[in-house]
Each structure stands twice: as C-alpha cells, then as structure tokens.
Simulated scan of single mutants.
Amino acid sequence: MKTEALLFAGVAAFFLVTDAIYIWLAREPAGGAALAVSFGMASVISFFCAMNYRRKGARPEDRQGSEIQERAGELDFFPPESGYPAAVAFGVSLLALGLVFGLWVFLIGVGVTGGSLLGTVFQFARRDH
C-alpha cells in the first residue's frame, strides 16, 4: 500500500499544480473547481492507502522475499444460482413502466422491487461459514 499511497500523492500533487496554473491562466471557475475536486479525491485515496499501510504493514506482494502461499486461503463465498436478480430487474421495469402508465403499476413495482431486494440481501444471511 505504500507504493499506491505515493502514486496517488503524486497524482494529487499534479492536480494541485495544474489547478494553480489553470486558475492563474484561464480565469474560469468550472475547470478550476473540477481540478480542485480531482486533487481532493486523489488526496483521499492517498491518505487511505497510507493509513492502511501504517495499520496493517506491508502486504506479501510488497515484500521481495514473499511466497505465493502467504496470500493463499479462503477467498470468499460464491452463491449458487438465484432468481432474485431477475426479480429485481422485473421490479425496476415495473417502476419505469409505472412512470409512463400510471401510479398503480408504479406501486406494484415498488412492492416487487422491495421484496426482491430484501430477498437478495437476506438470502444467505443464515449460511454456515
């Protein structure tokens, strides 16, 4: 993470210098604001990476003598097939059609979308680890 922090600090410095030059030469507020926001976002990412490096230390891929096995382990839980994504898509379609055809279709879409989103979120809430 130290390399990433330095990389984004360099990007933030570039945006800061570019912003100062742009404001001085262009005298136009929209571009200066966009460059200032870009500087802020790059600074936040740099700060996040630096704090992660300070808190967790070097990762195996950051060290010269590390082995592949140091990063091995359980990756994540991959769920089997589910019908909920199709139900969410159907509910959102009903929401869009409700905007065109009437409130009653929109309300049905709210119900279908809400129920299918809850199903998606809590489908594997009680699974064994």
Rank of each mutant, 00 (worst) to 15 (best):
R54C: 09
F78A: 10
A30H: 09
M41T: 15
G91Y: 00
A9G: 11
I68N: 13
L16H: 00
L7A: 13
Q123L: 11
Y84P: 02
A13Y: 06
G73K: 10
R54P: 04
L94Q: 04
A89H: 09
D19G: 15
G73T: 12
A87N: 04
R55S: 02
A33I: 15
A50M: 08
R71I: 12
I23G: 08
G65D: 15
V17Y: 04
A12H: 02
F106R: 07
M41G: 11
F15A: 06
G83R: 07
G102W: 01
S82Y: 03
E81K: 15
F78W: 09
V110G: 03
F78L: 12
I45K: 14
G83C: 03
P29Y: 09
G10F: 10
P85A: 02
F39V: 01
F106D: 02
A58K: 05
P80S: 11
S82M: 04
S43E: 01
Y22K: 01
P80H: 09
A72Q: 15
P29Q: 04
K2V: 12
M1V: 03
V11G: 02
Y22H: 07
R55F: 04
I45T: 14
V121K: 07
W104D: 04
F48R: 13
S82N: 05
F47H: 13
F90G: 06
I68S: 12
P60V: 06
M1C: 10
P85K: 04
M41D: 10
M41A: 14
F101V: 12
P79K: 03
G57C: 09
A20R: 09
R71G: 14
A87L: 13
N52F: 06
P60W: 06
L16D: 04
V11D: 02
E4D: 11
E81Q: 13
G32K: 08
Q123E: 15
L97C: 07
P29F: 02
V110K: 06
L103C: 05
P85W: 03
F90E: 05
G119V: 03
A58H: 00
A72R: 11
S38W: 03
V11I: 15
F101E: 08
A89Q: 11
N52R: 12
E74H: 12
A125Q: 08
Y84F: 12
F124D: 15
L35P: 00
F106W: 13
A36T: 15
G102R: 01
G114Y: 10
I45N: 11
